[in-house]
Design a binder for these strands. Structure first.
Lengths: 107, 107
DNA sequence: ATTATATGTTACATAAAGTAACTAGATTAT
DNA sequence: ATAATCTAGTTACTTTATGTAACATATAAT
């Protein structure tokens, strides 16, 4: 009997996207480079601790780069790489799905 | 100043996909209905506890249905709804991204 | 020296996931 | 009748991930 199994690359992709906040961080950065404080405002329920963790992991995986501008006060921007930008079609499809199938609770 | 913010439906979509194992479970079910033990074999590192939790949540969200066949021994199948099947394009794009950008460690 | 600002870090608390043993209900074997 | 088997979970307990709020560091302006 042939056993169905998942693609290992797909599994690795979901080690990333299957973590809380990651999909929101990357989508925010598709809009353009952003700094730490800006991301914190865009995703207010995410703690600074987790944002720092995610930035480190995304940088390690080559999905974002950290750019330091020694102004005053210092400005640090996080920017998607080609690998990161290449996630846009996938995240756009999730957006489409959400618009078609998610109903918001009435306020 | 206009503040960039994320689509609430997209955020809800990632409350789902941003949980460990969810993306793998749904992708497996796109292949056809499957039972508890089959999923456990397809995703061997996932515990039965979490699989039971995910099945309950996915059913609550209307993404899967649980079908009971009173054979002997009992057979229970989990099957994607239209809402669940509609995730296929998104997961296919993640698959494409993974094939283009994820390199596997050499064995 | 004091203040201000951005970018984080740290210590501690709670929630989520992992592990391994166990349960329930329905056959089937002894 | 009792024990063994099978699927589909559950339970008690441990470990990991995330949340919270206070603190640290670097730079420059006052």
């Amino acid at each position: 009997m042939i056993k169905f199994s998942l693609c290992p690359r797909y599994e690795i992709a979901f080690e990333l996207l299957g973590k809380k906040w990651t999909g929101l961080i990357i989508r925010s950065l598709l809009d353009g480079p952003k700094r730490f404080s800006a991301l914190s405002e865009i995703i207010p329920h995410m703690s600074a601790k987790v944002l720092a963790d995610r930035f480190k992991e995304l940088e390690r995986l080559g999905i974002i780069v950290r750019n330091v501008y020694p102004e005053t006060p210092v400005r640090i921007e996080y920017c998607l790489t080609e690998k990161g930008k290449a996630l846009q079609p996938a995240l756009d499809e999730i957006q489409k799905w959400a618009e078609n199938w998610i109903t918001l609770d009435p306020p």
